[in-house]
């Protein structure tokens, strides 16, 4: 018997090849066009004050908060849609096109294939969010300087004391591009990573892209009520059936409410002690769990 080279799972180089290939595939599917739309809207809003439409009372820090809010909202929309749709599309497409045969006929462990595919989607979301974050920071910096200049001129004319002017200036700067705001974008990424790994898990046992996409969005929706389900399980005076349902939802669905910390950050708040590391750890736990389940299913799958 001849002894070929050992091809152990989780080879970083091989995973890197599949990750970069998946990233290229998505880029060539013109996913980045979304960034162009985002940039146009962001720059347009700065030039033409789109965020004031329908809200003529917006002024000062409200304008900045509005830019932060809809920028983060757009990033969430983009990352959730790409996380579900791109992941749901890639695996079944490889099976349908039989490209998967040629990949698995090479010395590629199935775990490496799954990790690489997920890695490619996450890399795309990360790069997209980074570009959007930089664009948002640039526009916010410009806008903040304008608002600060207007406010300082107005309150100086009104004869405010220097200390109060400085306090107002700091308050306004706090609504500009802060590290907490970048942290919020990172939380958007973490949430997208959990959603993408959920979609990957579903796609390993589903045979249809449509089913994976719908179920992926459904899991995201139900995941926003996971905390309530947990409360139901631990609550008193509930029937065994309700307890069972609560336990089922709390076990299967990731708790997406945890990521709502973003709302506080948009309002100018900061991470509370240990909040970000806990979110990183929890996201990592969910991604690894989903990958593990995906691997268990995919390892036995026949093509």
């Amino acid at each position: 018997m001849s002894h070929p080279a050992k091809n152990r799972p989780l080879n970083p180089r091989r995973i890197g090849v599949i990750t970069m290939h998946t990233f290229t595939q998505l880029v060539r599917m013109k996913v980045f066009y979304f960034l162009g739309v985002f940039a146009v809207i962001l720059l347009g809003s700065n030039l033409f004050e789109i965020q004031d439409l329908g809200r003529p009372d917006l002024e000062g820090t409200d304008v900045l908060r509005s830019i932060r809010s809809w920028s983060l909202g757009t990033m969430t929309l983009f990352s959730v849609v790409i996380g579900v749709v791109a992941t749901a599309l890639l695996l079944p497409k490889d099976v349908e096109d039989r490209t998967l045969y040629t990949i698995l006929a090479k010395p590629v462990p199935r775990l490496d294939y799954l990790v690489g595919k997920l890695g490619g989607v996450l890399l795309l979301i990360f790069v997209s969010l980074l570009v959007m974050d930089l664009l948002m920071a640039g526009v916010l910096a410009l806008r903040t300087n304008l608002v600060v200049a207007e406010q300082v001129a107005a309150v100086t004319a009104a004869g405010w004391p220097a200390a109060e002017i400085e306090a107002l200036r700091q308050d306004t700067l706090n609504q500009g591009p802060t590290w907490s705001l970048h942290g919020a974008v990172f939380v958007v990424f973490l949430r997208a990573a959990v959603i993408a790994s959920t979609a990957m898990m579903i796609s390993t046992f589903s045979t249809s892209t449509l089913f994976t996409t719908i179920t992926g969005f459904l899991m995201y929706f139900i995941g926003n009520f996971q905390a309530e389900a947990r409360g139901l399980y631990f609550g008193e005076g509930v029937s065994p059936l309700e307890k069972g349902a609560g336990l089922l939802v709390a076990t299967i669905f990731p708790d997406f409410q945890l990521f709502n910390v973003i709302d506080n950050l948009i309002e100018g708040g900061h991470f509370e002690g240990g909040e970000l590391p806990m979110l990183i750890a929890l996201s990592g736990f969910y991604v690894v769990l989903h990958l593990f389940v995906s691997w268990i299913v995919f390892a036995e799958k026949e093509f």
Binding site: S2, D97, R98, T99, T102, P107
Partner: peptide
């Protein structure tokens, strides 16, 4: 070549062309 074909290592020595392959068009 003497290696169990369910083992990934056996594929180091194999090339496969499936029927009507599409490959990645991009």
């Amino acid at each position: 070549f003497g290696n169990d074909s369910l083992q990934v290592d056996s594929r180091q020595q194999v090339g496969f062309l499936p029927e009507n392959p599409y490959f990645y068009k991009h």
